[in-house]
């Protein structure tokens, strides 16, 4: 196992770089973080539509969420990778199509998490803001979202874990992220699949396990802040 790490360790981390394109773990992280960053505003919009008053917005958002949830991510990746270039008429880099597929997929899931955060706020918050004479925009962006997003920080970090795992599907459309690189290594070194996939699994594990520990740490921190708030309310 050490041999493999010595020989392919750098490749595992950065792919062909600097002689070729950046890949490996670095690309996995870039894809995952980029996906989350792009997903976030989309998810907020979906959450606002889902929890808002406008029926058409609600229906569209709900339709989107249900449809996306009904399709495997792999099918979205196929659509983005094989069909999209034909529709738009020019080729796109596989990495971008992977990010696009993950963003569409995750927008539905993260949207629901944020919507749950908004619904988890007490009605009194909305009413208090209205009683002060605040309009929809300031109520949403000054009162509701700051609280709701704070409360769902653990859920958002947890989605990053999910996205990292989902980015491994890039190996199916030859995006040279971590899994793809190790599949390449495996076809070079045909006799050591257990070691190679062991290293691959261990890499994901360390990354995702650390993130899920961070998630539960955040959860505890935020839960204690929340009870603090409730106590203050009760006293007042």
């Amino acid at each position: 196992m050490l041999e493999i790490l010595r020989e392919y360790g750098l490749m595992l981390l950065v792919g062909e770089y600097p002689h070729g394109k950046l890949g490996g773990l670095a690309l996995t992280l870039i894809i995952s973080i980029a996906s989350l960053v792009i997903t976030f505003p989309c998810a907020v919009m979906i959450a606002l539509a889902r929890t808002g008053q406008s029926r058409p917005f609600k229906a569209v958002a709900s339709g989107f969420v249900h449809c996306v949830r009904a399709v495997p991510l792999l099918m979205l990746i196929f659509w983005a990778y094989f069909a999209l270039p034909i529709v738009i008429g020019f080729p796109i880099d596989a990495t971008y199509t992977l990010i696009l597929a993950i963003v569409i997929y995750q927008a539905a899931y993260l949207g629901e998490i944020i919507a749950a955060g908004i619904e988890g706020l007490s009605k009194g918050q909305m009413e208090a803001a209205k009683a002060l004479g605040l309009g929809y925009i300031p109520t949403t962006f000054r009162v509701i979202l700051p609280q709701a997003l704070f409360n769902v920080i653990p859920g958002i970090v947890n989605q990053l874990t999910t996205i990292i795992k989902e980015s491994s599907l890039g190996s199916i459309i030859a995006v040279s992220e971590l899994s793809y690189v190790m599949l390449q290594v495996n076809s070079n070194e045909v006799t050591k699949p257990l070691q190679i996939f062991g290293i691959l699994a261990a890499t994901y594990f360390i990354l995702c396990f650390a993130l899920s520990q961070a998630t539960s740490w955040l959860e505890r921190g935020i839960a204690s802040k929340r009870t603090g708030r409730v106590v203050v309310e009760a006293v007042a």
């Binding site: 874990t161 990292i164 795992k165 989902e166 491994s168 599907l169 190996s171 199916i172 899994s179 599949l183 257990l194 996939f197 062991g198 691959l200 699994a201 994901y204 594990f205 995702c208 396990f209 899920s212």
Partner: peptide, 11 residues
Amino acid sequence: RNVPVLIQLFV
């Protein structure tokens, strides 16, 4: 929970 399903299949 912390390793992608695809990698579990590969293993």
